[in-house]
Design a protein around this nucleic acid. Sequence first.
RNA 1: GCCUUGGUGGCGGAAUUGGUAGACGCGCUGGAUUCAAAAUCCAGUUCUUUCGGGAGUGUGGGUUCGAUUCCCACCCAAGGUACCA
Length: 948
Amino acid sequence: MQYDFNRIEAKWQLYWAKNQTFKAENSSDKEKFYVLDMFPYPSGAGLHVGHPLGYIASDIYARYKRHRGFNVLHPQGYDSFGLPAEQYAIQTGQHPAITTEANIKRYREQLDKIGFSFDWSREVRTSDPKYYKWTQWIFIQLFNSWYNKGSDKAEDITGLIALFEKEGNSKVNAVCDEDTEVFSAEEWKRFSAGRQQEILLKYRLTYLAESEVNWCPALGTVLANDEIVNGVSERGGHPVIRKKMTQWSMRISAYAQRLLDGLEKIDWPQPLKDSQTNWIGRSEGASVTFKVLDSEQAFAVFTTRPDTIFGASFMTLAPEHELVPLITTSERKAAVEAYIETTAKRSERDRMADVKTITGVFTGAYAEHPFTKEPIPIWIGDYVLAGYGTGAVMSVPCGDQRDYDFARHFNIPIPNIFDGVDISEEAFADKEKTVITNSGFLNGLPYKKAVQRVIAELEKIGQGKGKVNYRLRDAVFSRQRYWGEPFPVYYDADGMPRMINEKYLPIELPEVEKYLPTETGEPPLGNATHWAWDIERSAVVSNDLIDHKTVFPLELNTMPGWAGSSQYFNRYMDPHNETEIFSREAIDYWQDVDLYIGGSEHATGHLLYSRFWQKFMYDRGWVPKDEYAKKLINQGMITGTSAFVYREEGSGKVISKGLITDKRVTPIHADVSFVNASDELDVDAFKKWQPEYKDAEFVLEDGKYVVGREIEKMSKSKYNVVNPDEICEQYGADSLRLYEMFLGPLEQSKPWNTAGITGVHGFLKKLWRLYHSGPNGEFYVEGASPSKGSVEDLSAESLKTLHKTIKKVEEDIENFSFNTSVATFMICVNELTAQKCKSRTILEPLAVLVAPYAPHISEELWEKLGHSESIATASWPTFNPEYLVESTKEYPISFNGKKRFTLELPADMDKEAIETAVMAHEKTQEQLQGRTPKKVIVVPGRIVNIVG
RNA sequence: GCCUUGGUGGCGGAAUUGGUAGACGCGCUGGAUUCAAAAUCCAGUUCUUUCGGGAGUGUGGGUUCGAUUCCCACCCAAGGUACCA
């Protein structure tokens, strides 16, 4: 009987769906195990072979855990708000909800074909109002919370208001805006309601603030860094400037230290932890206030090297620093303004990356040195970023290379404050060996003592203090987009934001005519005509009714992509609950995620924000764990082989790869589906696909157009995607699953090449044949079965093969080394085939071992073995080491570390006996050629090495 | 620039604590079967060689009886870098 994978796979997929085989219950005698995948964004291109990589791995793990007797929660859903659907809507006018729905349908079909053991009854979609109701709910809770540094957690804002009423804010130990003024209880009570709200905003965990954005005036919209190429918009090539905008922010900085500390108790990959650690960027130092000479102004800098304060020969402010226009002298004004304008065009990343070009301008103003009272020139330079620290730097050229280069470039003096150190060529940044000189009261002190001393002196004169600084900035939470969660926010008569009462959630996304920003530059929701909040009717009403008395305008921004993904893992525990985000029982049972698999590209986005929300939820008592995922694995990405055609600069001719020689060409992506295995392009298909090349001249070599090839991340935008559907069709889902695992280690990136799939497919056929040794390839196994009894011929060899496979596969799954277990299965089947094994005692456990990897074929074989229940209910075979005991060991005999021959010796032979046996061997004498070895290393069970 | 990861045959990769480098699969070569093909099976396949052997895990150095594995320096590629998700 043939291995008819198409029939078998369809049969079992239907069976699993009908019987709800993988539905998880919220209570069980079994121990719980929660396996989570990062849910996909349903793009129009459909699923490509890179997506399922992590899903297959987690599915294997989830299935394995079921065999080991756990109650497994393995849900899936869609991160269905996002930019591509909106972009498509702008281009076609099609509502994003419609395209998203269609894309989800396609994703689901594709996912179903691969045979995942998801509990689909728990599916969530972030763009579903039933889901985003709870995203809005969390936003309100954040708004109604402040961070109490005393208790080191988030608390209800009513507690803060009570404190203000009792004692003002001077003794309140809270995380708040830097510019928060001090007031007494009496003053608080006298403030207007609007004023009070304004002050509370400085404490709330989500608040309105000015933040910088990439503004593209031509497109009238804010762009992601991703959408900007070489300083201009990717679409259309328009200029982009950085501009300040009032937006919602999340006070994630309040959690900086806890986010750092929490990393120690979770089993996440070290590189990912490093990423988060660097992102949070804790540094210890001091905050120092400098007065501006001949002015009322002063500014603060943060420095990790306050000990070098006597070496400061200039100050550098970020060009965007608020003080710049206030202190610039009239004769420097033109130069400063010109410089600011140039900087506004550069992206932050550009400014950070570019260390070679040194630019800056002198403002004409001077700061006063807090101790020497000497004037210090104040410069601006774009290597200082406004958003980092205070946006101002105390420049000490002798101790910092960037300051050194800047000083050299502008001929600013470089005073040396390090004893016996030559700074004529470069700055000296070594803290450990530092002894300070030319520094008044710091002379002769080493680094640590100097830091302590200078901080004490600064505190004495009220111009500084020791400080821990974090690089982590508060997260901007507004997006000027349509396809995202609307805020449950309206603006009152004072223009202050107000939350809509929880019981009226969700506030649903309004319909708009077009998805672009309005002509006045408002976000797309500004196009909605029905987008006002009536506080009497508690309903969204027409904008015409806005009177700022009972009907108010609603927020026009929407939430960012990460809003919906920051708590979805908890919502899966109780996804249909309409009265709570999840029930107490559900969260108490499932607790947290035991295994989370997803890409490392989310390290400092989703994976940091979700930890922040979880800690907030924990503080407010809604979840029992302050870290939501015990273990996390990063799957590597799959790279594809992109194809390029080459357009000659100037002529516009498209030149075959071999004819480029020294011509100047621009490589352009060609869809890989137009290219055959010999790298020849179907020119007509290409022209049809990209009409702008319809009339272009294609210069051929030997009558063919040959493309260039390059390995890149597999992505729709690079036109190098390979779809899993065809592989499922041609080889089956089990082959696809095995092949994706067989490609290489889960965590590494690896190329996709379908050529090798015949290998794993051949293995499945061989596995099938092992159970079909009867006449005409009928199913046949020997041994007692539930239905009929027969005698089996069980060999010690087969038992050994089986048990070494059990051992290896078990270790592999526990270590997430799925590629090596596929190889192990192949060896096992090759050996059993050679042994002509037909024994049920071997073949039954083998089916269970294979089941997590290739579930369809295993189900079919399991059924044929006479079982009436799904193989998912079978328990994992038990490894018995007795079958693996060896009586001899083949020793490699090395001379000076190089193996020359091997020698079989009894496994239990001791060190001395091994040495004697080896030295007596003729080949040893042959190798030595009469020399006496200096030393003989014998490691019993491992190796013999003869030196000399 | 900074942070992170990786570099082993023609290709994907294996080598779990420093102990037989190249498991397993693809591809290729030869053979069996076949009218032929597909499928299947068998044998071989790191390079080099005067057939004794010699060299070999990005490059250069180091530690060690022994290094793909540990240390130092460098080269190359990929990912991230705060509004792609």
